[in-house]
């Protein structure tokens, strides 16, 4: 009896391994193609094959040495700075907002939740120009600070996921802390937050990714200030019809390098994905 169950579990796991490997293959295929392109010696945006005929490291080194036309290192640092600051600000905003909407009870709570839900629904490409002019009224355009504000300004509207998570933390924990004289502020920082690591990881990751992948807002905010571009917008410049053939492989290398900080951040933060945080340690 035990043996057959074990065997079945083993067979089940083998099946899962097979599925996971298959899916990984599909998911990684375009990425592998991208990486291959970044090591490809032959120029051109399109090839009918995946594995390059000749390999080279040039695409990477030249990203950092030939900077007169495309200043990749500078853009990379810009993006890193913007990503770090906007990540900190928006993570704090999202978590505090969701905490307030999940754990605190006040009059405007329900209306606020409804309004926040509705606000995200208007197709917003005209809003970028409005935001640009608002920032301009404050004298903030074409600066990295303005970008940080833009990326973290709307963060509060994405409260749903962490609110849903906070909702699952047993209230009894809060109540016992309150009996010990803890203020709401203390409860949030000392109790709720440590219990919510997976969702904090998710929030940080999403906030960190934003500046690396956006090329629309940054183009409206930065306009002709080429030095303050972020990598995504900068890489886009390599795709003009005059440049794409010569620069595509370098473009691929630039894209691969973007993926590195994000992946590192994730690998580092994965240790907080520990199973059964509330279910295991504190039984609700």
């Amino acid at each position: 009896m035990m043996k057959s169950m074990k065997a079945r579990a083993k067979a089940g796991n083998a099946l899962i391994y097979a599925i996971l490997s298959g899916l990984s293959f599909i998911w990684l295929l375009p990425i592998v193609w991208l990486i291959m392109s970044s090591f490809r010696k032959e120029p051109g945006a399109y090839t009918a094959y995946i594995i390059p005929k000749e390999f080279t490291l040039d695409n990477y080194t030249r990203l950092f040495t030939e900077t007169t036309l495309f200043n990749y290192p500078r853009w990379f640092m810009n993006t890193l700075i913007v990503a770090i600051f906007s990540c900190i600000i928006s993570t704090v905003i999202v978590l505090l907002t969701s905490y307030a909407l999940s754990r605190l009870r006040f009059k405007m709570r329900k209306p606020m939740m409804n309004i926040a839900l509705v606000l995200g629904m208007f197709p917003g490409f005209m809003s970028m120009i409005a935001i640009y002019h608002i920032l301009k009224a404050f004298g903030l355009t074409q600066s990295l600070f303005a970008l940080v504000l833009v990326y973290s300004g709307g963060a509060a509207l994405g409260y749903y996921i962490s609110k849903g998570f906070f909702d699952t933390i047993p209230k009894a924990i809060d109540e016992s802390a309150m009996l010990d004289g803890a203020s709401k502020n203390t409860i949030f920082w000392k109790i709720t937050l440590p219990l919510s690591k997976p969702i904090v990881v998710y929030t940080i990751l999403m906030a960190f990714i934003g500046p690396w992948v956006d090329f629309i807002f940054v183009s409206v905010i930065m306009k002709d200030n080429y030095q303050n571009y972020t990598v995504a917008l900068g890489l886009f410049q390599m795709l003009s019809r005059e440049n794409i053939y010569q620069y595509f492989t370098r473009f691929a290398a630039g894209a691969v390098l973007i993926a590195i900080p994000i992946t590192i951040l994730f690998i580092y933060m994965q240790k907080y994905y520990v199973s059964g945080i509330t279910g295991g340690s504190v039984k609700g």
Binding site: I129, Y132, H133, K136, V220, K223, D224, N225, Y226, S240
Partner: peptide, 15 residues
């Protein structure tokens, strides 16, 4: 300032 010819109109009208 860097604004290529294809983007001139868009960038101009934005501000």
């Amino acid at each position: 300032g860097v604004v290529g010819e294809p983007d001139a109109r868009t960038k101009y009208l934005e501000d």
